[in-house]
Design a protein around this nucleic acid. Structure first.
Lengths: 204, 204, 204, 204
DNA sequence: AATGAATGAGATTTCATTCAT
DNA sequence: AATGAATGAAATCTCATTCAT
């Protein structure tokens, strides 16, 4: 079915172009300020077409969030366990940072947090799939390091939260208030200090 | 001028009542969803009066934020230096938590973060006055504890950020995504663990 | 309170002007084709003002219907019982007709009937308040005539429906399909014939 | 041309399926609320095909009405003249009722009446072909009964309207306001009473 | 011939802000 | 000074109709 395949291809292209435009708009403007007409224009379709693809502004927003969440997890490097604890932690932190800034996850976070007051299910979804799950991935790494005797940990999930807390406070939290925040200057030192504090307690 | 004084008093009362109503509305609904008409009704004034007191919705919102910021700092207990480092840190953390939850600072944070994408000056203001400044107050405490030989710290501001990061990750961050989050169950243990990690590095 | 009174007067004037414009528009165009913007323009107000007075298109429509229904009943002349049965019935029929055509009740009927498929409560309301109630008023007249021995009736409500059926089939039904239908030419004869048939059965 | 014949057959099948779907939709929802996309879906064709068969929504609606009108007249039983006047009239009334309710003519009527305000030609068409013509069929029956000396009538058309008016007022009119109206309970008595009044004037 | 996708035009509704008294 | 009423501009969403394949 040449026709059908062609149509599917075009439709998928439009779908992606809409998602891109919506993502950009929502992350730049937040949910309320984003206008469906603007999104349509950016995606080079009519608003009617927009509504053929997503049945409401909320549905479109949710699709953006869900999409973003689904792409989490690919970011954690896998062979960290072959390194020293210090190097593994630093590299994990760097990967995390890169994803947050280059993937505009910080911008996403701002919007989700801003909407959480009036849309708690959204906040819940993001927290469970976007926050806790990533914590667990880090906890897995810590468990491996612990099994290898490189660190000593009894509660890996809490330990994961602790090192994340140390890193986020310096490198993520400021970006919540400033969309142009650039962590480059502070990153290495902040990560290094976070790891130092972490290992002061958990180092073997 | 008894009459003039009376009028001023009434006007000030209205001003406060507007601020209260606006605060409640903005924190519940976020900036965009909050309606000036609702605020006026809650404050028991007309919309026209609202605009006599605040020239725009943005100005009103800014006043709320500024007000909130001004009331920071009253929360840090003063005589912590007479305690053990552990107790002082725990008590400071508890005070911080109490202010965040009882004063609805978490709700404020959600809104400010949500607005920071489109209103960076606001984010900047809040971050400088509302975040950094409180960090510095905590840094002062750490300095005192350090001077008394109870802890060993070379960079008090970073240390302050570190303990705050440890506490916030467990007790504040979840509330960003869930307006009904209640930290009571976890608070003591989380604080205790944060202090433990902190002192593992900085304890005397 | 001069100001308050003035405002009330202006507001009531606008309210009436909106009702007039809405009535005209709904009766001319039906519910779906009537546009709130048109109604606003005809009433010389903005659409926003329209929505200050009536919270939705449906509410406005319902107000029109309710208003119309409330004005029923003033149309039945009261001293018919002093006449011959024939004259009384003829005069009642004429009054009925006049109300239907001059008051645009036929137009109202068309719209209500058209909406009844998708809005059964509306149909129910109109049937109970607008149809049955008027039947009962006519039944009262018949009862009086019967008590005076001018006619012989055991079931006044059915008799009322019967004479109304005889009249409506000739003079109202055609207007349901033709907004410009004018009954003048046929009215006298149709009424006279209806009364003749009616009295053939119920005449004393 | 076997292929062409096949195509014609398929096309005719689609035509009928469209008509069915449109009839159902229009009668359920009225003209404005009926959506062409829904009709297409119900008919299992694309909207483009819909427009190949009917050039506009109005044309499709008109086709439905015209179709319905064309099927009138098959409903009047033919051998009524062999009965007593009373039985013939009762049976004619019953047939009429059955067609109205089972054939969804009442639903059709609601829609046509609702549209007559903005589409007078439609109302005119229906009134002439759908109302007057059926009246004339009944008038024919009355003429036959009259010729047989069973009733005495000088103006058969008016007499037809009269008996129809008597019946419709009780059994059709209520259904105009209530799509779920069921006449079963009242039908026999109402018809019997209508016939009684009719024969009081016209009985031989 | 048939279709799924696309859209322009328009619908209802909302709201920050101003105006007349 | 205070207000209730008013509004322009814009938001989301719908739908009859057309187009590219």
């Amino acid at each position: 079915m040449g026709l059908e395949a062609y149509r599917r291809k075009v439709s998928e292209a439009k779908h992606l172009s809409i998602l891109d435009a919506a993502r950009e708009t929502f992350l730049d403007c937040g949910f309320s300020r984003a206008a469906m007409a603007d999104i349509a224009q950016k995606a080079d379709v009519s608003t009617a077409t927009l509504y053929k693809h997503f049945e409401s502004k909320e549905a479109l927003f949710l699709a953006i969030i869900t999409d973003a969440i689904e792409q989490f997890g690919d970011e954690m490097p896998t062979n960290l366990a072959n390194m020293s604890a210090e190097d593994a932690l630093k590299q994990a932190a760097n990967h995390y940072l890169k994803a947050q800034y280059e993937g505009r996850i910080n911008a996403l976070l701002r919007v989700v947090i801003g909407e959480s007051a009036t849309n708690p299910e959204l906040g819940d979804l993001y927290y469970k799939q976007g926050v806790i799950q990533r914590n667990e991935e880090l906890a897995d790494l810590l468990k491996q390091l612990s099994n290898q005797g490189k660190i000593k940990i009894d509660n890996p999930l809490r330990a994961a939260r602790q090192i994340l807390g140390l890193v986020k406070e310096e490198l993520i939290w400021p970006a919540m208030f400033n969309p142009k925040h650039d962590p480059k200057a502070d990153a290495d030192e902040a990560i290094s200090e976070a790891v130092k504090t972490f290992l002061a307690r958990y180092g073997a």
